[in-house]
């Protein structure tokens, strides 16, 4: 998920008019593409275990200073993992959640309503800000009206470690970061190629019709670029799912480790375990490519 966002932003930035931004993105892409993923995973893992403070560094010393401090008093990055506040679900939480979901739906409804107004009467309502407001404001209002049904349990230093909150283990964070950055670099290139594949004449024609660059991007360039982007994107997602098996490098128990490691050790039936493992990934791949195919067909271009 982060990889997609990174990739799309990166792809757009790589085409930026700004020379420094372009070069910076090029360095990012080449750096991640040309070094093995495994190296990145272990390097980031090493960074997180060796380069981050220990929980006891957070203790405030007698002179009032601490060797390390928490971000907003809520997040702590330590060599035992990243601590973030954990939500505590109050009695009315479900109600609040429902409102949140509803208001997001509402935002989409508003968008299509705005489009309809534009089509019917020609009035162009602002789209982005009201939609965001609709999505967020009711939830925040209700949050206070309902008397803060969802609290946050902040991690606090107790003894030699943090108490409370949720601990995200370092291996997971390292894996997630490395995979996102690595896949993001590839997606950057895909997005860039996709946007470049739309001929310059398309944006020129759109400009000549009086459309602004933003709208040109949304209505003309991106819909066409998407067609080119989807197939290689599919294979990137497949790669990503397969690369997640590298979790073994940092000792995070993914399917491969649980199935291939624990089960194998306990039963000693290598053949069956490998078969099961292979089938799992095969199934995952098939599902992903099936979904992406459906999406791809819906975006396909009509030709003669």
């Amino acid at each position: 998920m982060l990889a997609t966002i990174l990739g799309v932003i990166g792809g757009v930035l790589r085409l930026s008019k700004n020379w420094i931004v372009r070069k910076l993105m090029a360095v990012y892409v080449e750096g991640f593409r040309n070094v093995p993923l495994l190296l990145w995973i272990v390097a980031i893992y090493a960074l997180m275990t060796e380069g981050t403070p220990q929980p006891r560094d957070f203790r405030v010393a007698e002179d009032g200073t601490a060797a390390a401090s928490m971000i907003f008093d809520a997040f702590a990055i330590t060599n035992r993992g990243v601590y973030i506040p954990a939500p505590v679900w109050g009695p009315n939480a479900v109600f609040l959640l429902a409102i949140f979901v509803l208001s997001i739906v509402g935002a989409f409804v508003y968008r299509s309503y705005a489009k309809k107004v534009l089509f019917d009467t020609g009035r162009l309502l602002p789209m982005v800000w009201p939609a965001l407001l609709i999505a967020i404001v009711p939830t925040i209002l209700m949050y206070f009206i309902l008397g803060r049904p969802i609290g946050l349990d902040y991690p606090e230093l107790g003894g030699f470690n943090f108490q409370g909150g949720t601990q995200i283990s370092n291996p997971l964070t390292a894996l997630w970061l490395a995979l996102s950055l690595y896949t993001g670099a590839f997606i950057t290139e895909i997005v860039r190629a996709g946007i470049l594949s739309v001929s310059k004449g398309q944006s020129e024609a759109s400009f000549a019709l009086g459309m602004r660059p933003n709208r040109t991007m949304n209505l003309v360039i991106l819909p066409q670029a998407l067609r080119v982007i989807i197939p290689p994107m599919t294979s990137q997602y497949l790669n990503l799912s397969k690369n997640s098996s590298l979790a073994i490098a940092v000792g995070y128990p993914d399917v491969r480790a649980t199935l291939g490691g624990i089960t194998l050790n306990q039963t000693g039936r290598a053949l069956e375990c490998m078969l099961l493992l292979g089938l799992f990934y095969l199934g995952l791949s098939l599902i992903i490519s099936f979904l992406m195919n459906i999406y791809n067909n819906s975006k396909k271009l009509q030709e003669r």
Binding site: L118, F119, G122, G201, Q202, A205, G210, Q224, L301
Partner: peptide, 24 residues
């Protein structure tokens, strides 16, 4: 430089709707 992802009619109405704000 027609827009290949839009029909002929949509090609012709795209700019009037979004730029001139003509009802669809």
């Amino acid at each position: 430089n027609l827009f290949p992802h839009l029909t002929i009619l949509e090609n012709c109405t795209l700019a009037p709707i979004w730029v001139r704000k003509t009802p669809k």
